[in-house]
Design a protein around this nucleic acid. Structure first.
Lengths: 214, 214
DNA sequence: CCTACCGATCGGTAGG
DNA sequence: CCTACCGATCGGTAGG
């Protein structure tokens, strides 16, 4: 017989269905795990290759450089976070509900993508330009959006905090902190956690919690 | 004439008065600045030496190893933080006031020692054993103390949060976040910041703020 | 405090 | 996908 019994396309289809990662995806996953555990500079290409039972030079058939790997991880993580935040806050016009849903999205992201989020918050200095400036700029916009929401709530008389800028920083930071300790296999789901933190956010800005809403 | 015009002791006395750091202190300070900016693995001994107009081998007249430098910085930082927290919470028996003062001490520390605190929270993986285990253990005790305080407030009917464990994590994490963005030369002093965050902590756990207390 | 230098390891390339 | 190997840089030592 000539030709393979199973075509390359067929294999690719099965892989997609079975959730078996492609080589580039597997490398990325290993890099995320190692950068999270040991940091970017604390991880060598040999470490990543070793986790996949490969040799370091073979990695370069699938990526350009170690730095490119970091940039992909960090930029795609913050892009996803910004999208999730935009989607969450767009589902209502009520400012308090916007803040609640924004905080939930923020925390859910830092729980679900704990490793990527932590890398995104600790390895900024390891990013080469222009990616570093781009990422910082995205983070500044995100913080500014949050500040705007809290200021709006205060302006509408729906929140009472005397320091909307600090309150929004505190909300962001308590979410970022989640990425340091949240474990997917723990007793809490990311959504349950997000619900609690949504309440924390409203309490923090001095917005009365409506009982029985959730 | 024989002997120096100014004795070594005299020089040391002047240095202490003028706040001119000793060589080991200057090295430690340079290491803190660089570990904060670039991370432990992103900083070389040559970088540290260069910041002091020295050559790397000369550093070894004042320290044992790069790792020892990191351990000193991290262990002394958390030791100071634990002391400040213990002192702050010991000044009152009222549970809510304990939490307020504890939160203020926590935030003040992360503002005043922003660089050391950030290193302490990002470079744990770079610590060799047994220091790494020791530091993790100290952090766990600190988190447990916080959880205990919040649970006590709830038990006494002074706070209403349904999740004291998460609330205490949120308080700790919003303080840790301060170390990422606080600048000593900014418009806020660490004490002003701490006062706001003390209120945030009480709001977060569902403890009514007493107006006009501060 | 320095220069000279060490072995180890790094990210990455050549070539198959 | 591999082995062989590159120049650069690392933490640290020897010796003065």
């Amino acid at each position: 017989m000539k030709g393979p019994a199973v075509s390359a396309e067929e294999l690719r289809r099965r892989r997609d269905l079975d959730d078996v990662p492609s080589r580039p995806q597997a490398i990325r996953e290993a890099a995320i795990a190692l950068f999270f555990e040991r940091g970017y500079h604390g991880t060598s290409m040999r470490d990543i290759a070793s986790a996949l039972n490969m040799r370091a030079p073979s990695l370069y058939n699938h990526l350009e450089s170690k730095q490119q790997l970091l940039q992909d991880i960090m930029i795609s993580d913050i892009t996803i976070m910004l999208e999730e935040f935009a989607d969450a806050t767009a589902t209502t016009t009520d400012i308090i509900e916007k803040i609640r849903r924004g905080a939930e999205a923020h925390v859910r992201h830092h729980a679900r993508y704990a490793r990527e989020s932590r890398i995104g918050n600790t390895e900024i200095a390891a990013l080469e330009e222009p990616s570093q400036s781009r990422l910082k700029s995205l983070r500044r916009s995100y913080a500014a959006e949050w500040r705007g929401l809290v200021e709006q709530a205060v302006a509408q008389g729906r929140a009472s905090t005397p320091a909307p800028d600090l309150a929004s920083s505190a909300i962001i930071d308590m979410g970022i902190g989640v990425a340091r300790w949240f474990r997917t296999d723990g007793r809490l789901t990311d959504s349950t956690l997000a619900t609690y933190y949504g309440d924390f956010a409203l309490s923090l800005i001095g917005a009365p919690l409506m009982k029985g809403t959730s």
